[in-house]
Design a protein around this nucleic acid. Structure first.
Lengths: 129, 129
DNA sequence: CTATAAGTTTACGTTAACGTCAAGTTAAAT
DNA sequence: ATTTAACTTGACGTTAACGTAAACTTATAG
């Protein structure tokens, strides 16, 4: 370990809970661009921070393409105004989506609970007989 | 219209809000087996009822494979005991899954709302300047 | 100095539920 | 008897996010 701030793909992957393959995949998608030493990838602190942002994006349900959009703006626009506005808008959309999903789940749970009760009764009846 | 209880694939599809392709697909998956007149598919009342069951299964989030499992037991077991028990179990699992999902969504919404607020403030600040 | 662990590229595989042609057959309408 | 509308069977295409295997190259430990 020459420098704790530098990681190989496997190392960074481990520290983030993802595979090295995922890191390479994100590279082909141009989400991250680690430097090379020879042909080996070396990730630094910034790469790690960027990956954490990416994973946060995934956690809250954005696709890699959407995440790339945010990052591209972030990279291109130092003032970050455009980036923030896009993020703002997409976050709003996602909130609405999830509210809808939540509602769908609620309805589905009602339907499922009904079925569950029906089957519970049916099973009890066969036991009594 | 010789008989209102008999449908062609397109007709049944329309009445169910799905495509004829979907009906054919379900047939290859052995979920339904309409009779043939010549080589044309003809769906009767029972097929229609079965399709409604299938669509209900989909609505509450079961895969076609799971639905097939239910239907196969239903077809094989006139007493329906096994079928009901399997359904009972799977419905329970699905309920747990959805409860988990609901929780995930709640957490995600919290995170999103935080981001939303941050971006809202950032945008307001740039406007004031 | 060499065995081996680790990293690299390339490319096909996976999963679910259909969509979308293409090419041929048949039924119904004129 | 045609034209045309509907239906049929293949069979490949789609989408997302990687997994996995093969065939090499390079570092590093001993």
């Amino acid at each position: 370990m020459k420098n704790t701030n530098l990681y190989t793909a496997t190392e960074l992957g481990k520290s983030l809970g993802i595979s090295a393959r995922t890191l390479r995949f994100y590279e082909t998608k141009k989400l991250i661009t680690p430097i090379r030493v020879g042909n080996r990838r070396i990730y630094n602190y910034k790469d790690s921070a960027r990956m954490k942002l990416i994973l946060r994006g995934k956690r809250i349900g954005f696709s890699l393409d959407e995440i790339k959009e945010f990052l591209d703006l972030y990279d291109a626009d130092p003032s970050q105004i455009k980036q923030i506005k896009l993020l703002h808008e997409r976050v709003k959309q996602r909130i609405d989506q999830l509210a809808q999903q939540k509602d769908d789940i609620k309805k589905t749970l009602n339907e499922l609970n009904e079925i569950y009760q029906t089957t519970t009764e049916a099973i009890n009846n066969t036991l009594i007989k």
